[in-house]
């Protein structure tokens, strides 16, 4: 990602427990500041800062746990688009800006503007369709439940805190989103030989207990 991009990040200690989060937010509220935005290049090399990352999945429908697969140019398969949260207008690939204030127990937002990463823009679906968006604005009802993350991620310091965002395919127009061949179930995807490493981490959080027969 562009090192100049400014990303939302919190001290790692804020995610130690729910009470740590409340302590952190209370302390900052007194100062009238709710979040920290820092340059990606700095945050990436800082083990004590956790960058907030959305793992955006496109779900086939409400009934089935099928997710759209993106076949990346280097051969990897992924079902979630990683997007750093930014507070400024999203300009750099791999960032998403949310109208989200303030960061407290939970933060709701209804507008989402993303600049998708290059590799996803150059990806194709299982049926060969091209990635349809360059920059995308979507209205959706979703909320990030801080501090309830899905997992930590990062090749060097595990310094990203990942939140999963699912969007129903019906939010988009076009045949690509309606074709079930472009979707995959989580266990199938996990066993793909070329699955992306972030996907393994995030999808691994799926509770398989509910699927035992």
């Amino acid at each position: 990602m562009d090192p100049r991009a400014k990303v939302l990040a919190f001290p790692r200690k804020a995610f130690d427990s729910y009470s740590s989060w409340c302590d952190y937010v209370s302390a900052w509220r007194k100062l009238g500041v709710y979040f920290a935005v820092t340059e990606h290049a700095y945050a990436e090399d800082c083990p004590d800062l956790l960058q907030c990352l959305i793992f955006l999945r496109i779900k086939y429908d409400n009934k089935r746990n099928l997710f759209h697969v993106f076949n990346l140019p280097d051969g990897r398969k992924s079902c979630g688009i990683p997007l750093h949260i930014t507070i400024e207008n999203a300009r750099f690939p791999g960032t998403a800006s949310l109208n989200i204030y303030p960061f407290y127990k939970h933060s709701e937002f209804n507008k989402f503007i993303a600049v998708f990463p290059e590799e996803y823009i150059n990806s194709h679906s299982n049926t060969g369709a091209k990635f349809p968006f360059q920059k995308y604005e979507i209205s959706l009802e979703w909320r990030i439940l801080f501090p309830y993350y899905s997992c930590f991620w990062g090749s060097k310091y595990n310094n990203h805190v990942v939140f999963i965002g699912d969007v129903l395919a019906e939010s988009f127009e076009g045949d690509q989103w309606k074709d079930q061949a472009n979707y995959c179930a989580i266990p199938d995807l996990l066993q793909e030989p070329n699955i992306d490493a972030l996907d393994i981490r995030v999808l691994g959080r799926t509770n398989w207990w509910n699927c035992l027969r």
């Binding site: 746990n65 179930a185 266990p187 199938d188 066993q191 699927c211 027969r213």
Partner: peptide
């Protein structure tokens, strides 16, 4: 071992063969 037979997992019996794919 459990085999993923959409949309759920089936537990493999003692007398069953384990398929190559979708087995955990």
């Amino acid at each position: 071992r459990a085999v993923y037979n959409h949309p759920s997992f089936d537990i493999v019996s003692l007398d069953q063969e384990v398929p190559q794919r979708n087995s955990f």
